[in-house]
Each structure stands twice: as C-alpha cells, then as structure tokens.
Amino acid sequence: MQIQKSFNETSNGEGKLYLVPTPIGNLEDMTFRAISTLKEVDKILAEDTRQSQKLMKYYEIETPMHSFHEFTSVHQVKQWVDYLKSGHSIALISDAGMPLINDPGHPLVQSALESSLSVISLPGANAALTALISSGLPANQFSYYGFFPRSNKDQLEILDQISQRKETAIFYESPYRVHKTISKIREILGDDVLLVIAREISKKFEEYIRGSASELEEYLEKQPLKGECVLLVNGGSEIKQHKRVVDDSLSYKDQVLGLMDEEGLSAKEAIKQIAQYHQVRKQIIYAAFHELDQESK
C-alpha cells in the first residue's frame, strides 16, 4: 500500500515527477499552472523535442528538454529516477494531449512509484474527451479503446464487445484508415448505428461529422479526410446486436451453418465472416462448406 501526499514537502529532499498535458491543436489550450510548472522544473522530457520546441518558444519556456520515447532504455529510465531521487524535478509531456494516453511514459511513472517518488498529474487537453462531450452521444458512460485494431480477428472481437455494451465507444484513427474502419463497423453493427468523427480538434479546420454508419461511409467515399480523427460509436439499444456464434471445435461448414441459423445470414455472407474470423481465404471456407475439399477442417 502506498499513500502519496502530492503537495507536502518531502523531508528527504527528493524531487517530483509532473505529468503535464499539452495542446492538442491550438497552442493557447495551456493552463497557467502547466506553463509555470514547465518553467519551474529542472528538466522536461518530451516524446519529440523538435515538435515540443514550438510550444516552448511560444510560451518562452527555457527549461532544458530531453527526449523520452518508446525506445528509451531501462537504463535511461533508471537514470531519470536517480535524478529525481537527488532532489530534481521533471515534467513529462506528450506531443499533444495527456501524457501516457497512447504515448510513452508508463515505465518512468511505474519506476518512480516503485521508488516511492511523487507523481503529479496536471489536468488539461485530451482529444478523446473533448470529442465525446461535443459528439452528441451519451457521455455519462464511455469506454476508450485507443487506436482501432488492425487485424480482422481483433476488429471482430472488439466490435462484438461494443455490440453488447451500452456506453459510447471511443477510438483514435488515422484519416487514411477511417473509411475502411467505418465500413467494418457498418458490416458488423449495422447500417443505422450512430457514429461521430471529430477531426482537427481545436484547430482552424475543426469538424464534427455525425450520422449513421451508412451515411458516413457514403460521405467518405466522396470526401477523403485529413488530420487525426477521433471516432465515436453509439452504444446501447440502437446498435444492431450482432451475436457471433463461432465454435472453433466445429468444422468450417458447421460454423457457417451455425452463423446462418443464428443471424439469418446468407451462405455467402456467413462464409465471408467465418473467413474473416479465422483470417483465412474465403475460398477455403467456400470449399469446406460445399464439400469440395474433404481435407479441409
């Protein structure tokens, strides 16, 4: 058990680790406290010092800055913890938004806490929550999933989870992949599930695109997007409940038949979804279903 009194002066003279949020677009989205903290600490650790230098210059922050990224070694983490133990203070910042949210930093925080050092998080900008409260979707319950999965199997698993939950789901997504992602969501959760894309949050070209999965997919076919996106999916009763019944112990043919029976799918669609689930070519499932290849599973 550990109890941290964040703002009590430590008797042993050890320093503190501050987690300081930075703007997600508009440089003026800094709090007075964040600026003063960055000016007062002994060192600033940044994921990309070149990117963060723009912010430092804007607010005339001259604190020495060093890199801290996903490739930072365990040895370097120990060096920074020793630096804190010697009585110095450090601010950890992200390129944009809250540190540690889809960003490096956890090893440093974990190591600092294991050494009984104070870790103090400052409130500030966060793209996921900013998008949520402006989305029009319920904000009283939500789940943040990070970036939308890349593999078909992981996509199916996470969308099946969402179909059975009531809260709003939040993802980060690349503008180059968001069309494909929405197509997958539409395929699994249905045409009418409500979605919101928030892009370029707090910047000049900030935009919220709200509508059904079918409407957004049609829109994106004609209008490619730019800028990092936050994608929100409505939960609850308005989602088409997608009951994926896949028993891996059954043959491919029986799995297809089960999906057709449980969800009223055509053979073609069931074959496609079983192929996606197992990440195999549709021809393999097709052959097994039509008993063209007696050696198939």
Rank of each mutant, 00 (worst) to 15 (best):
G97N: 00
L129G: 04
V109I: 13
S121P: 15
A139S: 15
R50A: 12
P104D: 08
E70N: 13
E70Y: 07
S143E: 04
S94P: 02
F71W: 13
G87V: 00
L132N: 01
L92V: 06
P123C: 13
A127I: 06
E40H: 11
L132Q: 03
L108V: 09
N102D: 07
T72G: 02
S52W: 03
L84H: 01
I44Y: 09
I44N: 07
F68D: 06
A128I: 06
Y58I: 07
V74S: 12
T130V: 08
I133K: 02
L137C: 04
Y58R: 15
E40T: 15
M65T: 14
I120M: 08
D42R: 09
S121F: 04
L100I: 12
S118Q: 13
S143M: 14
P99C: 01
H69D: 15
V74T: 12
V109M: 05
V74P: 04
H66N: 11
L100M: 11
S118F: 09
K78A: 10
P99W: 00
M65A: 12
D95F: 00
L108G: 08
I61S: 02
S52T: 15
A112H: 03
N126E: 06
M56A: 10
L129H: 07
E40Y: 08
E40R: 13
S116Q: 14
Y58S: 14
H75C: 06
F71S: 13
L108Y: 11
I120H: 03
L84N: 01
A128K: 03
E70A: 15
I61C: 03
E70T: 15
Q79D: 15
T49K: 05
S73E: 05
L45F: 09
A125L: 11
L129A: 13
Q76P: 04
N126S: 15
M56K: 13
L137K: 00
S143R: 10
S111D: 09
Q141W: 08
S67W: 07
A131R: 01
G97L: 00
G97P: 02
A46M: 07
Q51V: 14
T63E: 01
H106F: 15
A128D: 03
N102H: 13
G97C: 02
Q141F: 12
L117N: 00
P104E: 08
G87C: 03
S111H: 09
S143K: 07
I93P: 04
L113S: 10
A128L: 14
S118C: 10
S111C: 11
N140F: 10
T49S: 12
P123E: 09
D82Q: 13
L137A: 00
R50M: 10
L100E: 04
E70S: 15
V119M: 09
E70I: 12
K39G: 12
S94M: 02
N102W: 01
L132K: 00
A46F: 08
E60V: 11
Q110T: 14
S86N: 07
H66P: 04
